[in-house]
Nucleic acid binder design. Structure first.
Lengths: 174, 174
DNA sequence: CCGAGGCGCTAGCTCTAGCAAGCAGAGTGC
DNA sequence: GCACTCTGCTTGCTAGAGCTAGCGCCTCGG
């Protein structure tokens, strides 16, 4: 058992013989690899990101695995893009890294990035609204923003604002 | 094969023999069941919610499965709480239902729900809105929430939802 | 009656996420 | 030298997510 060379760190050594054969395979691999690349790219993102955050925090893989409550081999596989973690695992890793889970979700493609930010985000996750109401609210919000884009800077709006304020509140209370 | 009674609708019948044996098992089951209940409760939420939304949209399970791009047996299992869907599947179901994925994530426990005040805060601090617009938005938001309080739980909302949608957009566009 | 199409569900299968057990290598202290 | 601790990784396994094939039931039209 002890005499059997385990491939734990044998990877750089075995890479040399692979390169000799690899030149023939490489031609075929390029065709297949291109299709796969697009898929793997997103997965690599989250793994690289996690490793980056871990290294920035100067935490070993085992330490993070422990504090996150996931197995260290699995975390290693996730970081190297060999596995695709579920949202639950991402949540745990985020907890271990002391970062927001949302940041990991975005990179994993689970969540869309929200350029609009807080208002949209708050409305979409509000449990007291139904779906139609959310859509209506966000439509109103967006139309207001468009209105402000046309009106220009806030200085110009204040005049129109005063006139509007006289009319709209009454209308609302009817 | 054709003579073999399939348990497609045999479930209510097989429930009777289970009750005879169930009395002895039930005592042990209570101890175990309590711990499990908290876990299953969250899972039931997402399934019931999806079914609720589907029924509100008056769409059959198969139709939703097709438009969501998931298998209909699996969607059935998800709705009945027998399976726990991944974020990717939830995303697809949300697309099929034409609702936000965030709403499903929140109910599945993937995303944290925002406290009610968060929408109010977000609107008030939004730099792209003027004061009049903020007030209007918050008025609409509050009226939606009052509407939902009167209507009761989300399952009942569909009737009130239809009526609300007819009234509110017109009012906004004046 | 039949067949066709729809409904929601059962059963069995495949694949992979996530784990435990263990490896080799590096560093430290005796 | 040894033993110990740490590191990141390999290997093999199991549970369950998600699928396909097909069931029984219902409605409709010929």
């Amino acid at each position: 058992m002890a005499t059997e060379p385990r491939r734990g760190r044998g990877e750089p050594q075995s890479a040399e013989p692979t390169e000799r054969v690899g030149q023939a395979v490489e031609h075929v691999g390029q065709v297949v690899g291109q299709a796969q690349q697009a898929v793997e790219h997103a997965v690599e993102d989250i793994g690289s990101y996690i490793r980056g955050q871990r290294e920035a925090a100067q935490v070993s893989l085992r330490q993070l695995a422990r504090s996150a409550g996931v197995s260290n081999p699995y975390l290693s596989q996730v970081e190297r893009g060999l596995r695709k973690p579920s949202a639950e695992i991402l949540q745990q890793i985020a907890k271990g890294l002391q970062i927001s889970a949302e940041a990991l979700y975005v990179r994993a493609g689970i969540l869309e990035e929200r350029p609009a930010g807080k208002v949209t985000d708050a409305v979409l996750t509000d449990p007291t609204l139904n779906e139609r109401q959310k859509r209506v609210l966000l439509d109103v919000y967006e139309s207001f923003r468009r209105e402000n884009d046309l009106a220009g800077p806030a200085g110009t709006v204040s005049a129109a604002d005063t006139a509007g304020a006289a009319g709209t509140p009454n209308e609302t209370r009817k």
